[in-house]
């Protein structure tokens, strides 16, 4: 059936379109892979164009199905971004904590989203590769299953550092910026899994209920919510009624 695994489940379920943006090689695809497959690849190839994946996120009162658009960070794909953030309800803007230029690029993306994307979009700023910061003990990861969650830098990273702390973006710098712009903020490691699920859960929680349920919410806002009463089902030859939240 269509995209509503919802029907069989007791909890209401909604789809959320999420886009990942950020400089090349900051770990966007790795974050998605960790979130969707709980897996990590040491030498992940750059994304060409874009990738599309889905993953569900269970909240106490509802299920969110993320439709994830993982975009390519390389400059030659920059024209793609508007197609992906158009009508997206959430964006994950990723930088690499070992690379200050990637935070600058992230700030450009945030500005572009604020200028061009849907007004209600939930933006999370994510500093990835936390495992490369020495001050981070690399523990406490609930779902990291990699045995190689070794602390400190791996030789092949772009930082020139051999040993010690590869962090070049202080947490408080990024946090201050995120607070100022009203963004969710996390530092993560796609490699160990640290904080990855938390980012998506926080986004799921931050999506206003009104934007999931229908347009007649906040005045003056174009709703991005899936409007089950109006939606036409193209497969199965009948219309999707107001299934959402219906107790039958």
């Amino acid at each position: 059936m269509a995209d509503s695994g919802a029907q069989a489940q007791p909890k209401p379920s909604s789809s959320v379109k999420l886009v990942l943006l950020g400089e090349a090689a900051v770990g966007k695809s790795s974050l998605v892979m960790r979130f969707v497959n709980n897996d990590f690849q040491e030498n992940k190839e750059p994304t060409i164009g874009a990738a599309f994946l889905t993953q569900k996120c269970n909240l106490p009162t509802r299920t969110i199905k993320f439709e994830i658009w993982d975009t390519a960070g390389q400059e030659r794909f920059a024209s793609l971004a508007p197609m992906y953030y158009r009508n997206a309800q959430a964006a994950l803007v990723v930088y690499d904590i070992t690379k200050p230029s990637s935070l600058t690029k992230a700030q450009h993306w945030v500005a572009e989203l604020q200028r061009q994307a849907s007004p209600g979009i939930v933006i999370a700023l994510v500093g990835n590769k936390l495992d490369l910061a020495s001050s981070n003990p690399n523990s406490g990861s609930s779902d990291g299953d990699d045995a190689d969650a070794a602390p400190a830098a791996e030789g092949e990273e772009e930082g020139e550092e051999g040993e010690g702390d590869a962090r070049r973006v202080p947490t408080k710098t990024a946090k201050a910026y995120a607070d100022e712009e009203g963004l969710l903020f996390f530092e993560t490691s796609a490699k160990t899994g640290l904080n990855v699920a938390e980012v998506f859960t926080a986004i799921a929680n931050a999506i206003p209920e009104t934007s999931l349920k229908g347009p007649r919410g906040v005045g003056g806002q174009t709703s991005l919510g899936r409007q089950e009463d109006a939606r036409v089902n193209l497969v199965g030859g009948r219309t999707e009624g107001a299934k959402e939240g219906c107790a039958c």
């Binding site: 060409i48 164009g49 874009a50 599309f52 024209s79 197609m83």
Partner: peptide
């Protein structure tokens, strides 16, 4: 058109606006 272009990009298509 955008959904079609997105799918094309997922297939590896390269996009350039203003070109």
């Amino acid at each position: 058109t955008q959904a079609a272009c997105r799918a094309s990009a997922v297939g590896g298509g390269v996009y350039a606006l203003g070109t």
